[in-house]
C-alpha cells in the first residue's frame, strides 16, 4: 500500500469515527486511536498524537454552534480548566514515560467505560436547592434556558469536582482523547450542574485541555504531519455531519451497535497490550 491509498483510507476511517463520535457524544478520539493502532498498524504514540489534534479541531469547531444557545457556563469552565490543563500536562509527561503496552491496557479500560456510558447515559441529578459557600465566592452559580423559561442553578462540591477534572485532564493527556464523558460526569454528578450545561461547558473545555498536552506531544515528536493531516480533516468533516444528523434523529439503536463495537475494540486493545503485540 502506498502513501496515497493509506492517506485516503485513513481519511475515510476518520470521517466515520468523527460521525459516530458526534452522534453518540463520545467524540472521535476513542475510535481514532484503536482505528490507527489496530486497523492501520500505527504505533500507539503516533496514534494518540494524531487523535489529540483531531480532538482540538472538533471541540473548537463545534463551540460556536453551542454558545448561541446560552447553555455553557464560562466561569465554572475557566476555573475548572486550571485542573484539566494541569492534569493534561501531567498526563502528557506520563505518556512519554509509559510503555506502549500499558497505554494500550489503560485505553482498553477507558473504552469499556465509554461503552457502558454510551448505552446508559447518566440520569440527570436533581438540582441543588441551596447555594454553596465556595460557589458563591467564585460566582459560578448561573441560569440556563429551559422549555419553561430561565432556570437558576447552584453549583456544589467544587473541591471534589476540581480533583475529578484533574483526573479527566490526565486521561486526556495520557491517551490523546477529549475525555468529555469524564468531564460531564464531574460536573453533572459531583457538582450538580444541569446536564445540558455540563455537556456544552465540557465541549468548551476539551479544546483547551487538549491544547495543554499538544505542546508536549509536539515537542516529543508525537505529532506526524502525514498522519495528522487526514485524521484531522476527516474527523472535522465527520463530526460536522454527525452533529447535523443528530438534530434529525435520536439514534438509540445505533448507540447499542456502537457500544458493542467499542467493547470489542476494548478487548482487542487490552489483549494486544498484555501480549505486547502493539
Amino acid at each position: 500500500m502506498d502513501n496515497l491509498l493509506f492517506t485516503l483510507l485513513l481519511w475515510l476511517g476518520s470521517v466515520a469515527a468523527g460521525f459516530f463520535g458526534a452522534l453518540t457524544g463520545l467524540g472521535g478520539g476513542v475510535i481514532i486511536v484503536p482505528l490507527l493502532a489496530l486497523g492501520f498498524g500505527v504505533n500507539i504514540r503516533y496514534a494518540i498524537g494524531a487523535s489529540l489534534v483531531s480532538v482540538i479541531a472538533t471541540s473548537s469547531g463545534a463551540a460556536s454552534a453551542y454558545v448561541k444557545e446560552g447553555y455553557s457556563n464560562i466561569r465554572i469552565g475557566m476555573f475548572l480548566e486550571i485542573a484539566t490543563t494541569l492534569g493534561a500536562l501531567f498526563g502528557a509527561f506520563l505518556a512519554t514515560m509509559t510503555p506502549t503496552s500499558t497505554i494500550a491496557i489503560v485505553f482498553g479500560i477507558i473504552l469499556i467505560y465509554s461503552s457502558i456510558v454510551s448505552v446508559r447515559p447518566p440520569h440527570p441529578t436533581p438540582a441543588a436547592a441551596h447555594p454553596d459557600k465556595l460557589a458563591g465566592l467564585l460566582r459560578v452559580d448561573s441560569s440556563y434556558p429551559t422549555g419553561e423559561g430561565i432556570r437558576n442553578y447552584y453549583v456544589h462540591s467544587i473541591p471534589g469536582g476540581f480533583v475529578m477534572m484533574f483526573g479527566a485532564g490526565t486521561i486526556s493527556g495520557l491517551l490523546g482523547i477529549g475525555s468529555g464523558v469524564m468531564k460531564v460526569l464531574a460536573m453533572d454528578r459531583a457538582m450538580r450542574i444541569p446536564f445540558k450545561v455540563s455537556t456544552t461547558t465540557s465541549n468548551f473545555m476539551i479544546g483547551v485541555t487538549a491544547a495543554a498536552s499538544a505542546g508536549i506531544y509536539l515537542n516529543r515528536g508525537y505529532i506526524d504531519p502525514g498522519l495528522a493531516m487526514p485524521v484531522m480533516l476527516g474527523v472535522l468533516v465527520g463530526s460536522f455531519a454527525g452533529s447535523m444528523a443528530l438534530i434529525k434523529a435520536r439514534p438509540a439503536s445505533l448507540r447499542k451497535v456502537f457500544s458493542v463495537i467499542i467493547l470489542l475494540l476494548a478487548v482487542e486493545m487490552i489483549y494486544r497490550g498484555i501480549t505486547g503485540k502493539l
Binding site: 500500500m1 502506498d2 492517506t7 498498524g41 504505533n43 515528536g221 508525537y222 506526524d224 498522519l227
Partner: peptide, 16 residues
C-alpha cells in the same frame, strides 16, 4: 511528493 512511498508508522522514532 510522497504519495508513492510506503508509509511506515510501526516503530515510534519521533518526528525530526
Amino acid at each position: 511528493h510522497y504519495g508513492a512511498q510506503r508509509p511506515n508508522y510501526k516503530v515510534f522514532s519521533g518526528e525530526p
